[in-house]
Design a protein around this nucleic acid. Structure first.
Lengths: 200, 200, 200, 200
DNA sequence: GATGAATGAGATTTCATTCAT
DNA sequence: CATGAATGAAATCTCATTCAT
């Protein structure tokens, strides 16, 4: 007996969507393929028409998330010249994106340790590339005197840690809108950085 | 071959220490009791002289970490009157503590989802109590006009997120000393907050 | 090495048959699923394609035995009008059935204590329904004056105890045929009951 | 720390009493020595000051029950000359005894299969010796013409099965007194046997 | 593409038993 | 005589994965 209605490409999408959700809720190790199969209306064995192994599912998910993130951040930064403005755009983009994609972000941060070494290397390097966008922007700021000389690596990690942290507790039905949260955190980031006064 | 001698309490400590380390490295679900037993030189079944279940191990670990954290933070804050000074003490304590206890901190943040509902409630409420220390301090600052009116909950979460984030990448053999990191982050926290100028 | 071919239903039957036999020989608690699996040519884990738990195996077995027993006894009694004749039919049916199905009968009597409370209730009520057939028949006998007034519950239990007891030692290769045993016990039952003389 | 008050011979008795009760309730296999130890206020290891193995506990229990049974039945029969009277005494003794010692009787009937071969042989032969008392009595009856010629083995088993069966459902708080039950069953036994009329 | 049956490895947990103290 | 710590074997059950149909 074949379940009607969950065929082909749609099935693949359903598997990925359910995969993200279940890993987010239970963790990669606690996720069972039986659970995943049930969720998308298949028998466990049938998943193997779509994924090669459980590990492969995780890698595919993380790779997809991070490549999309890179594409999107580059698109957001494209055409922005002023480095301080670039910094603002990055922070705003990161906040909006991470509030919307809570689950993807969470597993990208917490399931690195579940990756086999080779896969881990690949995913970590994608993440580094993303962080690089912020470090480069800070370096530009310093180079152009828009920021006092600082350890831009440390600053970048602190900024990312803070703004990423918010996705750990942001809830769409909470008392603050996304726009408000974005403004508040952007303010904190900017006032936390040593920006020299400029002559008007 | 049986290890001779009554090594009770020492074995308990060894189990807990190995437990933290292995959960930190592999995650609670990926940790096997076989592995843990091997690490402390026991047969798997012998662990049950010390813990009731695997879940019990996790709860004991987290409960121990958080109650110690509460005791220590209260001791650090004891006697400090000035609310801005209290804020500084909290931040410095948190940073020093979290850099030293990377592993405990990490599992307290990432393994909440591995707790059964009842245990989860207990641990979450301990964590809330700790966060409460910061929120209360911020409220005091605002009440005494040492801080412009802000949403102290949001600020507290942002601060904690940032300073906790550093334990994700701090490494004792890195280029910066603990003292330097503490100063840098304390600076960021304070310059990120709206502290009115005071007349001398 | 994997046994080829879809042997589903046959495997299920094999599991149930081996289950009855092994529980009969060793008892439910002493039965191990390893043993059962070996007996039907599977790996232990594969049993779980057919049963949900070990307890589930026992319940399925007992439920099957008792529902079959009820169906068969009703079929045997169907159409018999005379209550004394009904009594004879019941006793003969019970004896023949219990001699043939020694193992099922034995575990239905001895493994009730291995059932979890809910399952126990279900199985006990099936057994009560069976005993009810005999009590009702005795009541009819008394009502129609074919039997002097007696405590029909006590009589029913005594009869069942006696005729069931024989399955504890009946062996097909013994010196007495089934027919002989049936006649002997039926005689004992009838002469043990206060049947008034009837006028010819 | 030593538990006060459960020392020496009293401890041995407590272990045996708890052993009978727990085996009666849960079965020999389901009984754990931990449970037994808890019940008598000892640590599991301490049981080994009193028993050699778990199997040894069962054997000791069964041997004790059966030897006592033999002693008691012989005492009851001592001095009784008339074989029919002897039969009556046996049946009455058996009923009274088995109603009082439900638990011992039950495990003697149901846990034979838990005995290792050698132990089993010993216990079975004790049981045979007890049954022998009834068979011999029936043989005497036949020899003296007090009973029509019958297969005394079959009759003995049927009688024992019936009267033993009652201990499966007798409850001290039930509606019938022990005396009533004894009379009812003795009647059934006697009317079920072919006792020729005697001229006075 | 999907299923159902199977594998084989391994997980947590239980338990009888031992023995130095 | 009792304890506490340990063993080692085994029990039930789970799970990723395979593959003929």
């Amino acid at each position: 007996m074949r379940t009607v209605g969950s065929r082909g490409p749609k099935t693949m999408e359903a598997i990925m969507a359910a995969g993200v959700r279940l890993i987010y809720e239970h963790g990669y190790d606690a996720l069972t393929l039986r659970q995943l199969a049930r969720e998308v209306g298949l028998q466990p064995g049938s998943l193997y028409n779509y994924i090669e192994t459980k590990q492969d599912l995780l890698v595919t998910l993380l790779r997809g998330h991070l490549t999309r993130l890179l594409v999107d951040v580059d698109q957001a930064l494209a055409g922005v010249q002023d480095p301080l403005e670039k910094l603002r755009v990055f922070v705003e983009f990161h906040l909006m994106d991470h509030m919307v994609r809570k689950a993807d972000v969470f597993i990208a941060n917490s399931e690195l340790r579940s990756l086999e070494p080779e896969n881990r290397r690949e995913i970590v390097s994608l993440r580094r590339a993303y962080e690089r966008r912020l470090i480069d922007t800070l370096d530009e700021c310093v180079a152009q005197g828009r920021l006092a000389p600082i350890n831009t690596h440390v600053a970048a990690f602190a900024i990312i840690a803070m703004v990423t942290g918010i996705c750990a507790w942001y809830r769409p039905d909470g008392p603050l809108t996304k726009a408000e949260l974005v403004r508040m955190h952007t303010d904190m980031v900017f006032s936390g950085l040593p920006i020299p006064d400029e002559k008007k």
